[in-house]
């Protein structure tokens, strides 16, 4: 039983990180209508900025995380302005190619500066709480708490504020949004900024229990894609719940089935769910 709860906790940790990354991806999808392949690279850059600020500049963990969020938000907005905005009238394939270009570019820049070595970010929270047989590392609790707090804040922002509503309006009906006077550029920049910040915070939260290296975004991005396909493209609750499903499946599957195949489980699950419900789990009936 303890083992099971332990794995549930691990699943929650993974799931909340995946959820944050997938949320950004799904928000941007709502605006661009193409998957942003560069999102995994933004995640990776977030981890490196956090590493740089904390290890090389010696800043506090939280300051480093805030710096990562700010830098990556800016980088994400720059991608929108310099790459996606000029391509807005081009066929979708151009966006996809450009996104892959950004991904390769960012990885090359990071590798040029830091090399391909694996690096570690030390966590300032090394305590381990024990509850009976359960071990609860403080960093994992921080990840879960931080991620869910952020999701809650994002939910309130999107549902309760006028500027948040404009993001959803734009995703639900682009022309309708223009006709009420919503400025497309503003919404696009805001969405990219939020997506970038979410990816950077996810990376900064997760990096202390993982490794930092230029290709670290690949698997996370692939899983984020699985999640938003599972949850329904553009669906916000879908991204959160999809993240948790993949997180749990990986943790439980890795423990009970085979840890070697834990990364395969997400994709098996994708195949199974899509063959039962091809539109994803949370696509809205009303369109």
């Amino acid at each position: 039983m303890e083992q099971f709860i332990q794995q549930i906790l691990n699943g929650l940790t993974l799931g909340s990180i995946y959820g944050l990354v997938a949320l950004g991806l799904t928000l941007v999808y709502g605006i661009l209508h193409v998957p942003n392949f560069a999102h995994g690279a933004l995640y990776m850059v977030g981890a490196y900025v956090c590493y740089f600020a904390m290890v090389e500049l010696g800043l506090n963990y939280w300051v480093a995380m805030a710096a990562a969020a700010a830098v990556v938000a800016l980088l994400s907005v720059l991608c929108e302005r310099l790459v996606f905005h000029p391509l807005r009238h081009a066929p979708p394939i151009h966006d996809k190619i450009a996104a892959i270009g950004i991904l390769l570019f960012l990885e090359a820049v990071v590798q040029m500066h830091w090399g391909a070595d694996f690096r570690r970010i030390p966590t300032p929270y090394t305590e381990i709480l024990r509850l009976g047989e359960l071990t609860l590392p403080a960093q994992r609790l921080l990840i879960i708490g931080g991620a869910f707090a952020l999701m809650g804040a994002l939910h309130l922002y999107l549902k309760k504020t006028m500027t948040g509503l404009t993001i959803i309006a734009m995703a639900q009906n682009r022309e309708g949004a223009f006709l009420v006077g919503i400025d497309a550029n503003r919404v696009a920049m805001m969405t990219f900024a939020i997506a970038g910040a979410l990816a950077a915070i996810a990376a900064s939260l997760f990096a202390p229990i993982n490794l930092v290296y230029p290709a670290m975004g690949h698997l996370v991005l692939l899983k984020a894609f699985v999640i938003i396909i599972l949850g329904g493209m553009g669906s916000i609750p879908g991204a959160i719940i999809g993240g948790l499903i993949i997180g749990f499946a990986e943790a439980l599957g890795g423990f009970y089935i085979s840890s070697t195949y834990k990364d395969v489980i997400a994709f098996v699950l994708l195949v199974v769910i899509l063959s039962i419900k091809p539109t994803g789990l949370f696509t809205k009936g009303v369109r």
Binding site: L165, T166, Q172, N173, G176, F178, L179, G181, D183
Partner: peptide, 30 residues
């Protein structure tokens, strides 16, 4: 379009172009 709306020219489009997943109230507020 945003400049035209601000100038007081508002279109109610063919096919309505509502925000289907949002409540009626939010559609109106937007």
């Amino acid at each position: 379009p945003s400049a035209l709306v601000a100038a007081g020219v508002v279109q109610c489009p063919e096919g309505r172009k509502l925000f289907p997943g949002m409540s009626v109230l939010k559609n109106l507020r937007l």
